[in-house]
Design a protein around this nucleic acid. Sequence first.
DNA 1: TATATTTTGCAACGCTGTTGCATTGTATTA
DNA 2: TAATACAATGCAACAGCGTTGCAAAATATA
Lengths: 138, 138
Amino acid sequence: MHQTIIDTLKRNQLSITDSRKKILELFLHAKGALAHFDIEHQSGAEFDRVTIYRTLQTFVEKGIIHTIPTADNSIRYALCKDDCANGHHHDDHVHFMCDSCGTTYCLDHVTVPQVSLPNGFTVTQTDVIMSGKCMKCV
Amino acid sequence: MHQTIIDTLKRNQLSITDSRKKILELFLHAKGALAHFDIEHQSGAEFDRVTIYRTLQTFVEKGIIHTIPTADNSIRYALCKDDCANGHHHDDHVHFMCDSCGTTYCLDHVTVPQVSLPNGFTVTQTDVIMSGKCMKCV
DNA sequence: TATATTTTGCAACGCTGTTGCATTGTATTA
DNA sequence: TAATACAATGCAACAGCGTTGCAAAATATA
Ligand SMILES: [Mn+2]
Ligand SMILES: [Mn+2]
Ligand SMILES: [Zn+2]
Ligand SMILES: [Zn+2]
């Protein structure tokens, strides 16, 4: 696991620092997506807010994590699959946010459906966010 | 037009105030969705920020407008169809946000597709946000 | 180990959204 | 229309998110 973390950083030409290792570790252990808030708390106030912001930015640019738009307007982040790299994301799965526990899931096996738009619109991205209750909160 | 505004407010048991009339008017004339920022500027600094926030909240609760989640994490608002009332929204259409001009469209005639989820998830809402270029920005 | 390059922490800032409370405006009834 | 009850507004203050500039610290390179 520790080696996976270092490999991932090296593969993306990132220097190995404490904050990057720790934040990447949090994502690898996380069940759902993480918000900045979660990371700040789960890392035990070890790093500055700004460092966390910058690390998340870097990870998004490198294709290590992707952002998830949510209805409550708070950005969440989750690990990408292997085919995302260097700013070219290919995350075409549906996201689910539980109204009860707030957990945000990447439904990797549910692909976003094709939606045809009126003439004149050119689509480059489609986000599907579903909400309701998850299996733990029935 | 002016009568439409007053009627709408009365129908929703809202008292007739300058800010409500003005903000509702802005929505009726708007081509796309409006953010708080847009309203604050288009109303000519006539009303306090807080009043605008509270008016938007009230309109959402009454089913006059609905919120649109966007990938850039800024809430936008747009008029509801007639069948939304008193906190019961039935907005099941797709939204499109232009990367070029920022305009957010309600595609009222494009309904959100059915997406079946794995067992355990109970869905109450589905949001589809598409982005790319609109007809004005080809 | 010495040097060049990156990353970090801190301070400061602007923006968004919320709350409490006194003042003002609207609706109601006589 | 005027008096009253009630609701909405403006103001001040606050908390949270996200960004930037810069000096100090950590990392990579040789
Ligand atoms: Mn995802
Ligand atoms: Mn809409
Ligand atoms: Zn849940
Ligand atoms: Zn456009």
